[in-house]
């Protein structure tokens, strides 16, 4: 898939150094060396013994190709700082913002991009057996890049295959169709609300699809917390993820009191693909 979005020069250089399947992140910055990550470790891409310096043209090329030569189709994601390719690769973008009345209208002069390649990691389910056996609302906590989305996808598939109707709110289109992951990887009883803002999706699909479980990635903002509180009040279980370095810190933060009260299980991710502690509030 990367060969479709990377300029052949960059792709071939990476290919000559590494096995493409192992690469999980590529960072390209204007006039800076290209850096890629393998299992969380960053390496500098070299060409002829020297660092490969990315140009603005190469960044523009990637943006244009990743958007299928249709920047207009990526208007909303770009305002949120990313582009999602049709193969599900998510490209974070950073550049100069065009702001009007405190609202971001566009991002221009994109100078940095971060290409994240989704991997279908299989988690050992021994620590998750209790959650899967006696399911209650579950919050997955970890710093960025540890595999929250992957674990969410894993749980969604398991719960969905066990016959529960799961509504997956995939507003950033990265849970259901990332890299080598296809819709079969998210279970047979999963309904996907793709690319729909979560505040709208919670409101409408909770009524129309009557889910047993609502799954969403990366809780952000009071509006979403309100929606989760409403869901739980309605008797619908929620499974979600949040950025934090430890469950302890999250629980102690009074700003998240309302959120924490909604969840029964809290799952920490220790390392990439490795589940740490699982807290059960009812124990």
């Amino acid at each position: 898939m990367l060969e479709k979005i990377l300029p052949s020069r960059i792709f071939n250089e990476i290919l000559s150094c590494e096995n493409m399947d192992k690469i999980c992140e590529i960072r390209i910055r204007k006039d800076k060396p290209i850096i890629y990550s393998i299992s969380g470790k960053y390496k500098i891409l070299e060409r002829g013994g020297q660092a490969y310096i990315a140009s603005q043209d190469e960044i523009d090329w990637i943006i244009l190709t990743a958007s299928e030569h249709s920047i207009y189709a990526q208007d909303e994601p770009m305002k949120q700082g990313y582009i999602c390719t049709k193969d599900g690769i998510r490209i974070g973008i950073c550049g100069q913002g065009v702001v009007e009345k405190d609202k971001l209208c566009a991002v221009k002069n994109i100078s940095s991009i971060c290409i994240r390649i989704g991997k279908n990691i299989v988690f050992s389910s021994s620590k998750l057996d209790k959650i899967l056996g006696d399911f209650g609302s579950t919050l997955i906590c970890s710093p960025p890049g540890m595999g929250k989305t992957t674990l969410l996808r894993f749980l969604v598939k398991k719960l969905s295959d066990s016959g529960k109707n799961v509504l997956l709110l995939d507003d950033r289109e990265e849970v259901s169709s990332v890299g080598d992951i296809n819709e079969n990887c998210i279970g047979m009883c999963t309904d996907i609300a793709l690319g729909i803002p979560k505040n709208i999706a919670y409101k409408y699909f909770l009524r129309s699809m009557r889910p047993d479980i609502v799954a969403s990635d990366e809780i952000f903002g009071d509006e979403e917390i309100d929606a989760i509180v409403d869901c739980v009040r309605c008797g619908v279980k929620v499974i979600s993820t949040v950025h934090c370095d430890s469950v302890d810190r999250l629980v102690k933060d009074t700003r998240y009191d309302r959120l924490c009260r909604c969840f029964r299980y809290f799952v920490e991710i220790e390392d990439i693909g490795k589940i740490g502690k699982v807290f059960d509030k009812e124990m």
Binding site: L64, S67, E68, H69, S70, I71, Y72, A73, D75, M78, A106
Partner: peptide
């Protein structure tokens, strides 16, 4: 002129 600008401008 196709595909290089944002939605509003493209329209």
């Amino acid at each position: 002129s196709l595909g290089k600008v944002d939605y509003n401008l493209q329209v």
